[in-house]
Design a protein around this nucleic acid. Structure first.
Length: 424
RNA sequence: GUGGACGUAGCUCAGUUGGCAGAGCACCAGAUUGUGGCUCUGGUGGUCGUGGGUUCGAGCCCCAUCGUUCACCCCA
């Protein structure tokens, strides 16, 4: 073990992992553009107050999970623990509401939460998320959910399931909480400490408690949907109807509650059976009050975010996933005198758009070929004294061990035609 | 913040009641001079996470500490 290691809860994304990341990022970008979303990038740190106001003072994230510090100018700053509040801040700051009725944005980047690391959970993790601001119509909720499902289909992720719920609005939320408290209050002394603490501050979260004894007292629970106001009920039914209409499979889960305060009405989660205990790949919902709460005009909005690390985990579990890479050309000068001319050829091939490895630290053909084999090269260009004397290059096809002497100045076109031949 | 498991070579791990630090993979070099994957031979590589204690003697036992990992909590 070396003396310096990556800090607890962080990790290096090594070249071996990188193809997965590129695949997820590029697939996301092109899919989001199909839905006419545009990218936005915000700072990795913000004023602490933004998260305190936006996410909610009594949430776990704000209470104990934020990386907060003061800079040399005594500003209270926080490494962003999530993406939505900063997007909304930028939306308000740049007056985007006055540029078009609806703003459809996506983002990608690192988030930071001070938690105990675990399978699929890191202190620095990465999210890709979308936010649709400006429309209260239930079709928007459905479109956002459909976009998430579409993306994971496109990525080829299997074993996913969609859960959906409504947590109500400022009108009916108090009613829901009151009914819940009436029901739970009967057995409050039997519930765990966390649940007792949440009874007053965040009663909805008791629904989500994993404690098995608490769960037993949840049977016979009044369905949260019965307490929704008419508008919320209608909204929910439309969302569900649109999803049915698209044939997207989902489950209504009345226990599904999000840990962030800003959610209203629709909440949803896309989970995987391949992630261990932290099985949520993607979470999101509607947040109609956040923009005005952060000083903007009353603006309804809906969005989601998913964890890239968790998506990578699922891809790596899938054995049939295979990455396509460009073929490699390995150039083997035999002898120092042949290096300069080889370099010239290498330059031509690269400018033609092909991947080339030039190895000059080996002087034996045998070790060159071993190395080329290890790098999985498709072609090896052998250029030694014999070739230099007749101004030719020996082009060897590794797959069938055949080779051909090509005049140096015609080598490029020959190599290109070999590489374009996709029979390998 | 709480609980369990684990820290030995670059990687995966053996290591007996406490008695010379090991294997496989990987890497490097060879098996007669310019032809790779298989095979064979040899080699590089470790302050046994760190600090203390017990002992003639500790990779092994005890304490502490740091880290990794899984789970709780919470979330992506």
């Amino acid at each position: 073990m070396s003396k310096y290691t990556a800090p607890r809860g962080t990790k290096d994304i090594t070249p071996d992992d990188m193809p997965f990341w590129h695949y997820i990022e590029s697939t996301s970008r092109s899919l989001f553009s199909l839905y006419n979303y545009q990218e936005i990038r915000t700072p990795v740190f913000e004023h602490t107050e933004l998260f305190e106001r936006g996410i909610g003072d009594s949430t776990d994230i704000v209470e104990k999970e934020m990386y907060t510090f003061s800079d040399k100018g005594d500003r209270r700053l926080t490494l962003r623990p999530e993406g939505t509040a900063p997007i909304v801040r930028a939306y308000v700051q740049h007056g985007m509401h006055s540029k078009s009725k609806v703003s459809k944005l996506y983002y990608c980047g690192p988030m930071f939460r001070y938690e105990r690391p675990q399978a699929g959970r890191y202190r620095q993790f990465h999210q890709i998320g979308v936010e649709s601001l400006g429309s209260a119509l239930p079709i928007c909720d459905a479109e956002v959910i459909a976009m998430g499902v579409h993306l994971f289909d496109e990525l080829g992720l299997s074993g996913l399931s969609v859960a959906i719920n409504s947590v109500g609005c400022p009108v009916c939320r108090p009613v829901i909480e009151e009914r819940l408290k009436q029901f739970i209050g009967l057995n409050l002394e039997h519930l765990c400490g966390d649940c007792n603490r949440r009874f007053d501050s965040r009663p909805l979260r008791i629904l989500d408690c994993k404690n098995s004894t608490c769960k037993t007292y949840m049977t016979g629970l009044p369905d949260i949907r019965d307490s929704l106001c008419h508008e919320c009920k209608d909204h929910f039914n439309y969302v569900v109807g649109y999803l049915d209409n698209l044939g997207i499979p989902f489950q209504i889960n009345p226990q599904l509650v999000r840990g962030l305060d800003y959610y209203t009405r629709t909440t949803f989660e896309i989970g995987s059976d391949q992630l261990g205990a932290q099985n949520a790949l993607c979470g999101g919902g509607r947040y109609d009050g956040l923009v005005s709460q952060l000083g903007g005009p009353a603006t309804p909005a809906v969005g989601f975010a998913f964890g890239i690390e968790r998506a990578v985990m699922i891809l790596q579990e899938m054995s049939d996933y295979h990455q396509r890479v460009n073929p490699l050309v390995y150039v083997a000068p035999v002898g120092f005198d042949q290096v300069a001319k080889s370099f010239l050829l290498v330059d031509r091939i690269r400018r033609a758009g092909y991947r080339v490895e030039l190895e000059t630290s080996k002087n034996e053909l045998k070790t060159h070929l071993k190395q080329a084999d290890k790098l999985n090269a498709r072609l090896v260009l052998i250029y030694g004294e014999d070739e230099a004397n007749v101004d030719k290059v020996l082009v060897r096809r590794m797959a069938d061990r055949t080779q051909e002497l090509i005049p140096f100045d015609h080598a490029l076109e020959y190599i290109v035609s070999e590489l374009e031949d996709d029979t390998f």
